[in-house]
């Protein structure tokens, strides 16, 4: 049998995960629907006053994105864990962090990217100032991958547990806080017409930090959970 190069392994795994996701479209739509529904709940709960909604729109969008991303986390490894694919992946000759990165990338393309596409529509419905749309998109583009990367550590730690869901949120949500703070504050600042460069740079820093460190932590946690 021909041996795969590391690059090939990455792309095959990415393609496989995307293919699996697209064959199972209803599951694909779930995080997106959840995102939209949470945002719909807010005007119902706090009242439909346009000024108020425009003021809290960045926060609402980001809290909803955070929850949607967290709820979909379990899907990164769950089915592979149950049918034994994950074990084979850990046994393979390729470095596990790279494979983890492929899986997380696929997960982000399936759950994060739809949020990015739908968020301007929801921002419009909440009456967010138009000058902030660009920054909103940028924060979601930079922020949601960080959520997926950090979340993958939490999933890897709890994958072997029968009731991992609650524990997972307890583990992961505190670690999401910096992303939430800087993203929401970037949009806030942009909405009043100031420059959000500082916040965007922080988000970039978080992204690179998570990108370079979290696959290793996830791989270590996976080995632990599978042992």
């Amino acid at each position: 049998m021909k041996r795969l190069s590391l690059n090939q392994a990455f792309w095959y795994l990415l393609r496989r995960d995307l293919l699996l996701a697209f064959r199972n479209r209803s599951e694909l739509a779930n995080p997106l629907l959840f995102f939209i529904m949470v945002i719909t709940l807010f005007p119902l709960a706090v009242g439909a006053e346009p000024n108020l909604l425009a003021r809290i729109a960045p926060g609402i969008i980001w809290v909803a994105a955070l929850l949607a991303s967290m709820l979909s986390l379990d899907g990164i490894f769950r089915s592979d864990f149950e049918d034994g694919t994950l074990e084979q992946m850990l046994l393979s000759a390729h470095p596990v962090p790279v494979l983890v990165l492929a899986k997380v990338t696929a997960h982000w393309l399936v759950t994060g990217l739809p949020l990015l596409i739908i968020s301007p529509l929801l921002a419009m419905m909440l009456g967010l100032d138009e000058s902030a749309y660009g920054i909103l998109l940028l924060t979601i583009l930079l922020g949601t991958p960080v959520l997926s990367l950090i979340g993958s550590i939490g999933v890897a730690l709890t994958i072997g547990l029968r009731k991992g869901g609650i524990i997972l949120s307890l583990l992961v949500l505190p670690l999401y806080v910096p992303v939430l703070i800087f993203s929401a504050s970037a949009i806030d600042v942009a909405a009043v017409g100031l420059s959000a460069t500082a916040q965007i740079k922080m988000l970039l820093a978080f992204l690179f930090l998570a990108l370079s460190l979290s696959p290793w932590a996830t791989a270590a946690a996976l080995r632990m959970s599978m042992s």
Binding site: L157, T158, G164, L170, A217, A221, S225, S227
Partner: peptide
């Protein structure tokens, strides 16, 4: 919570160690 949730305490300790470092 994580330590309490994992039954095998040696595995639990290592999981918790990872979490603490993160």
């Amino acid at each position: 919570g994580l330590y309490g949730a994992i039954d095998d305490k040696r595995v639990a300790a290592r999981a918790v160690a990872t979490l603490a470092i993160v």
